[in-house]
Amino acid sequence: MITFDGVTKRYADGTVAVDDLSLEVPDGAITVFVGPSGCGKTTSLRMINRMIDPTEGRVLLDGKDVTTVDPATLRRGIGYVIQQAGLFPHRRIVDNIATVPFLLGWDKKKARDRAMELLERVGLDPKMARRYPYQLSGGQQQRVGVARALAADPPVLLMDEPFSAVDPIVRASLQEELLRLQSELHKTIVFVTHDIDEAVKLGDTVAVLRVGGKLAQVAAPADLLSDPADDFVREFLGRDRGIRRLGFVPAKNLALDPAPEGVTPEGHGTFNPARDSLRAALDAALLSPDGLAVAVDDDGRVLGVVGQAALVGAARG
């Protein structure tokens, strides 16, 4: 567990980047720091691996003040992914991934094998192993960055806007990939972004910071969307907060009507009550000419229908 205990960071020029931050980052989950530019997200993150030391307060990793640990040793046990990947241009991809294992003195073969395994894990072709970073696209480099951070199997992963330099489609696939990896690995991840959609998509917990480095709210994404703590958070979450909140409400409790004669999945929007959210169901209804969302099961059999009025009622809770 990572604990911020009354942490303040004041830079030499007097800028207060983080102001009296107290926060617990739970193990095995993704905690997202989100907020407008300059609100101190990066500074907070970098105080965990001692790239920056706090001016006041303490950052604890498993109960131990990080400033009592040698920085290099500390960092070798914490994965770190940054926006531009920061790969070593002079090393092949496989050796880039194996950087920390090499540092830790692993046997060469073992380190390379591990790197190859991770290459596949993050969804890259093993053929890429022998390439140099300049031969990869931005999205591929970012995947290598993630693989490199995971190489020595650190329990903690710090990610600073890792996906913000790639286009939206690649970003979405990288996000999916991260969630899939996390479901297997259960790392303690601190993820920084300024994109609220990314925050609610990835975070088990979301911490919203405001400019001046003050914590505005910490909550699970659904709670954040339904109960913003103040005007700043409400503003930051944006206007379609209501709709987005539905993404966190499961559709399984919807009361289904029997499907009228002749209603088929073709020509209607469909959703799967066992898996999808209320948002998907509402979307399906809006897409259907007659306003009916068709519920289907895993095999595509029609289970029933639900109308717009019933959906809006359910959304009201």
């Binding site: 691996n49 790239m51 920085p71 290099a72 040793t73 500390l74 960092r75 070798r76 046990g77 914490i78 770190y80 940054i82 926006q83 531009q84 990947a85 920061g86 790969l87 070593f88 241009p89 950087t99 920390v100 540092l103 960055g145 490199r148 710090l158």
Partner: peptide, 18 residues
Amino acid sequence: ADPDLRDAAYGMGLRGSQ
């Protein structure tokens, strides 16, 4: 040298001379 490279290198736990 690229500041990101330097940052990433320190972040992975390389020491100054490394």
